[in-house]
Amino acid sequence: MDVAYPVGLVVVAAAIIIGFTALVREKDDLHRILLTDLAEILALVLIALVATDLAEALILPGLVVGISELMAVSEVYIAKEGLRAPTGPPFRIEVMNSAPGILALILVAYGIVLSGFTGGVIAAVGAVFYFMCRGHTEQFELIETVSGYAWAFWIGAFFIFMFLPGYWFFGVMIAGGAILLKVMAKMSLVGTMRGGGPDV
């Protein structure tokens, strides 16, 4: 460990120099977004070099911050360039008529069993698939509302942990349920948001 850490640091420093040199030379905005996204991994590598349970926990906020900034900035890019989703013939295959109900049900149910982050992702895949096949216009508002409530629940759970630590079990349950809802809502929103075209 004593030798590994400085060596790791030097490797990361070399990677930062390479990545940022690429950014200095790159003039195209879209490529800049991609390079930035790539370079953000270096922050996670630096945290991971600490190699404790704490570092494991800190990677998650680091990752989420990177993803959210990427989402906001790419949306700004789309607005800046005035890009539009291309319109074409709708994408239809037979399975999209018969499968969505049952597949979405299975995925959402399995996601709820898993719960937490992973569960949220799996449930969201089910929801995205369902909306993809059945259209999504009216569900949009509903998902946003759910996401807002989940956020509030999460904050509530945090205050239970901090001020009523004896009730930690309720805190875990509330936070676990909230994060399932939150991840699921966010994922399915992101999945359906680009649906300006007829195919999604």
């Binding site: 349970d53 704490l54 494991e56 926990a57 800190l58 998650l60 906020p61 989420v64 911050v65 898993l114 719960s115 937490g116 982050f117 992973t118 569960g119 956020w151 999460w154 904050i155 759970a157 945090f158 942990f161 901090m162 630590p165 930690w168 805190g171 875990v172 349950m173 936070a175 676990g176 349920g177 994060i179 939150k182």
Partner: peptide
């Protein structure tokens, strides 16, 4: 991946404020 699963302790409890900021 479960609530009360292993990774969550630090994020939920001792460093809960980090997660609050992160979700915000």
């Amino acid at each position: 991946a479960h609530p009360g699963g292993i990774i969550d302790e630090i994020l939920y409890n001792t460093r809960g404020l980090d997660t609050v900021v992160e979700t915000s």
